[in-house]
Simulated scan of single mutants.
Amino acid sequence: MMSNMISKFRITDGKGFSLKDFDAGYADGFEKSDAKAVLDDLIEQTFDLQTELYAANKYALLIIFQAMDAAGKDSAIAHTLSGINPQGCQVFSFKQPSTEDYDHDFLWRHYKALPERGRIGIHNRSHYENVLISKVHPELLLNERLPGIDTVKDADHHFWAKRYESIRSFENHLTTNGTVIIKFFLNVSKEEQKERFLERIDDPKKNWKFSSADIEERQRWDDYMHAYEKAIKETATKNCPWYVVPADKKWFTRIAISTIILETLKDLKLKYPTLPKEEKRKLEESKKRLERE
C-alpha cells in the first residue's frame, strides 16, 4: 500500500500534470484512529536510517515544503520529524528577502542554507517562492534590480522560462553532487483553508497565526493554483520529483510525508562505514584493554 501511495503522489514529469487530478481530502484507506501508531512506526524507522545517513556521510537530504497558507506546513514538519536526531537536522523558514538577499541572485540565500553531507535540511518555503509569490505579485521582481526588468511588463514568458531553467539546473547540480531532494506541495482545498482561517480567528490561542493579509491573498487563489501547477510542470524531474500530498486531513498528510521520507532514505541503500584493517585491529586492542580494567 505504501509504495502505491508514493507513486500516486509523485510527479517526475510535468507533461499532462494538472492539480485538478489530485484530491485534497484523499486518505488512501487509512483511519484517523490508526494514524498515531502508523506515524510512530514510520518515525522510528526513519530515525534508524538517519543514523546511517549521518554515519555514511555520503548524501545530504533536502526536504522542501511549499503550500498555501493554513495548509499545515509547520505542524507537518513538527510531527513527521519529531523523532529525528536534532544534531543531524536543520530547519530554515524563509521569509521576505532582506536587502542583502536582494543584492544577490535569487538562489543565493537558499544555497547558503543547504545541508551538509550526512544531514537532513528542511526548507519551510524555498527558492520556489520566486516562481510562486513573485509570479502572482510580479512587482516584487523590481526589488531584485535585474538587468532588463525595469517594469512588471518586462517579466514576460521568456523571463519565467529562464527562471524555471535556473531552478532545474540548480537542483540538478545538487543531486549530481550528493544532495537528495524531496519537494512537497501540501495540497489543501480552498474550503478547508476557510475552515482553518475561521478556527484561527475564533480561537484566541491561534489569533497570532492569522493576518488580514491572508484574506487578501486568498482572493488570488486561482492565480496561486496556476502558479503552483506551472512550477510543478516545469521542475518535476526523475531526480527531483514533486509530491502533491493531500492536506485536508492533517493526520494523513503526516503519514504520507513520513512514508515518502522513509522510502527515499531506504532507496539510498545506506550502510555504516567499514573500518580499515588497521583501525579494526586498534578496536580489538582497545576492547582488550577495557576488559582488563
Rank of each mutant, 00 (worst) to 15 (best):
N4Y: 05
N4L: 11
I11M: 04
T12A: 11
D13G: 02
S18P: 04
D21N: 15
A24L: 01
D28Y: 13
F30W: 05
F30Q: 00
E31A: 12
K32Q: 15
S33G: 15
A35F: 01
K36A: 12
A37S: 14
V38K: 09
D41K: 12
T46I: 10
L53R: 01
A55I: 02
A55F: 01
N57D: 15
K58W: 03
L62C: 02
I64Y: 03
I64V: 15
A67K: 01
A71R: 06
A71N: 01
S82R: 10
S82E: 10
G83H: 12
Q87T: 04
Q90G: 06
F94Y: 09
K95H: 06
P97A: 01
F106C: 10
F106L: 13
L107Y: 05
K112W: 06
L114N: 01
L114Q: 05
P115N: 09
E116N: 10
I120S: 02
I120D: 05
I120F: 04
V131L: 03
L132D: 05
S134W: 13
P138F: 07
L142E: 09
N143T: 01
L146M: 12
K153S: 15
H157N: 11
W160D: 12
A161I: 08
R168I: 09
F170V: 00
F170Q: 02
T175M: 06
T176H: 06
T179N: 04
F184Q: 02
L186S: 01
K190N: 12
F197L: 11
R200W: 03
I201T: 06
I201Q: 12
D202Y: 04
N207Y: 03
E216D: 14
W221F: 06
M225N: 13
M225S: 03
K230V: 08
T235Q: 00
T235E: 09
T235L: 08
A236F: 07
N239A: 13
Y243S: 04
P246A: 10
A247V: 14
A247I: 12
K249C: 00
T253G: 00
I257C: 06
I261R: 00
K269P: 00
K269M: 08
E278D: 12
E278T: 13
K282F: 10
E285F: 09
E293D: 08
